[in-house]
Write a protein that binds this DNA or RNA. Structure first.
Lengths: 307, 307
DNA sequence: CCCGTCCATACCCGCAGAGTATAAATCTAG
DNA sequence: CTAGATTTATACTCTGCGGGTATGGACGGG
């Protein structure tokens, strides 16, 4: 009846990810029998089974699925507490900021410069993060703040929008839609759209113009599964531009990305009803550092002139 | 270097709350020496001291203060995972909804009735919660959804606004400000305002009209410490009305509360620039139960007609 | 049909965490 | 100023639990 053990959660996540007790045990650096016992113990404590085991294959039950999600979340929170506390214990307090390479790169130095001018500013370290990794880095304490772009997973984070801009369609030069001056989301629905690897359904909806601006506020619960024509997979904006130029896809991109890539073989057309592209500053809900608060204040004062 | 132990967090919170190792040990049902050791070990792991101890008095260091906050949050998350998982393991899935007695009471039955009509609806249990306790109940898994009113601590919760209404000033009948038709927040700043017990700074700012609608979006970081005249302490809306009627204070209340209490000895005047009073449905970010999602959908469809 | 693979069971061990006794330190009372 | 009370820190012991090893048993592949 006493609270759950983190150790058990870690074990459970490992088994759920490997779908094998022996592989999970190896990954955890332990033997398999104690792992089995620990999972059994967790199941007894919860009063339900987490895995189907037919001595050959291991699969998650429905209960296991939901616990997996919750367990990951809880472990992130816990790791974040530990990391932030460790860093706060150092005698010279420091902030860590992160941003993905690309669109938002220019913004971070300006924010940090503005912050550095404030009295009592502490040193800020900048680290680059992989695509869509920023939110995780903030959640688990590897970073204090991140520049994130819509769409991102808001769980566990507070955020403040900094800039917002309309989105445009990037079309190969000869494309029929290029003749029109303005487009709407529905016009793009039959077209092949570039795919981002490991994108969530909500992210796919946003980048294909099917999110109906619901995704912005409560993405996890929103679902729009209307059929989508999937184009080639791309993993950075440069690839995306190339794919469009080759006529393999049509993309819905932020205006600034269009402006940064003027090319004769691509035409950009505003998409009037697409939800806008927003860059936000995000930080952990768990953290109440005054230094962090000042950095956030500096960023909003700089980019969202009060009015 | 390995992640933090929950046991350590529990111990730390106990000591931080009791500000005494021996009392904390008693509360935890253990002896005092192992507690001291555990805290020392935690301090070594973090690389900083958490308590000032002069063998007579124990006090939190700055690091301790921030860790206390984070630790409470993390423990809530963990407890929530455990409770939700235990409940999900029962063969008959159930949802638990909570609301404070008072303003929002009438709304919950309507939501639940609308939900109950849906196919596949599961039984919903209703529990009442103390004032401002709803968010905690959702965080630590005692409830799945809560009707919460601005202002509340959003950490760890997703929420969806259901209704929003302007706020008005409640003034004793003979009050000078009662002569004017409309007021602004600044007009109230010199007046004594009722105090809610254990209110956070952000809550005090909201109820005294000093939040500048910043509190709505990022309350934790907002601070407005301009001097406030504190009136008598009240713990429910009925008391608040009485206190105003007796001429002991002036209050900033939601319009519906004013409408529900027409009295000859109180006059209500709209406060045009006060941030509105919002009732939201809140649930844990950690949870992805489809039943919960349907309940949320039912509530929003009922109260926020799509348009 | 046999062998390999993978999970479960049985049993043992070591250590971390908890208890007891006690010292050291500081405040209070008189 | 001193004696007692209170509270944290130290020293030592012990026990329970988490982990390891060996092995059994079930299923699938060849």
């Amino acid at each position: 009846m006493d609270g759950i053990e983190v150790r058990e959660l870690r074990y459970f996540v490992a088994v759920a990810e490997e779908l094998s007790f022996s592989r999970a045990a190896e990954r955890l650096g332990m033997a398999q029998p104690p792992l089995s016992r620990a999972i059994r113990q967790l199941e007894r404590r919860l009063g339900g089974t987490l895995f189907h085991r037919d001595t050959r294959r291991v699969g998650l039950t429905e209960l296991g699925e939901t616990l997996l999600d919750e367990a990951r979340y809880a472990l992130d929170v816990l790791a974040g507490v530990g990391r932030r506390a460790s860093r706060a214990a150092q005698d010279t307090p420091t902030l860590v900021a992160t941003a993905k390479p690309g669109v938002a790169t220019g913004m971070l130095p300006r924010i940090l410069a503005a912050y550095a001018c404030l009295p009592g500013a502490v040193p800020v370290e900048t680290v680059v993060s992989g695509y869509r990794e920023q939110a995780d880095m903030v959640r688990d304490g590897r970073a204090d703040v991140a520049l994130v772009s819509s769409f991102f997973d808001r769980r566990g984070l507070d955020s403040e929008p900094l800039t917002t801009e309309p989105r445009a369609a990037a079309l190969p030069a000869g494309h029929p839609l290029a003749r029109r001056e303005e487009l709407r989301c529905a016009d793009l629905h039959g077209e092949p759209m570039p795919q981002w690897p490991e994108a969530t359904p909500a992210e796919r909806a946003y980048w294909s113009g099917r999110d109906h601006h619901v995704a912005e506020t409560r993405g996890r619960l929103a679902e729009d599964e209307s059929a989508e024509v999937r184009g080639p997979t791309v993993s950075d904006p440069g690839q995306l531009i190339e794919v469009v130029a080759l006529g393999q896809a049509v993309a819905l991109i932020p205006r600034s990305l269009a402006d940064a890539n003027p090319r004769p073989d691509i035409v950009y057309r505003p998409v009037t009803d697409a939800s806008p592209y927003t860059i936000s500053l995000a930080w952990s809900e768990g953290s109440r550092s005054p230094h962090l608060a000042r950095l956030v204040r500096a960023a909003t004062d700089l980019l969202v002139p009060t009015g």
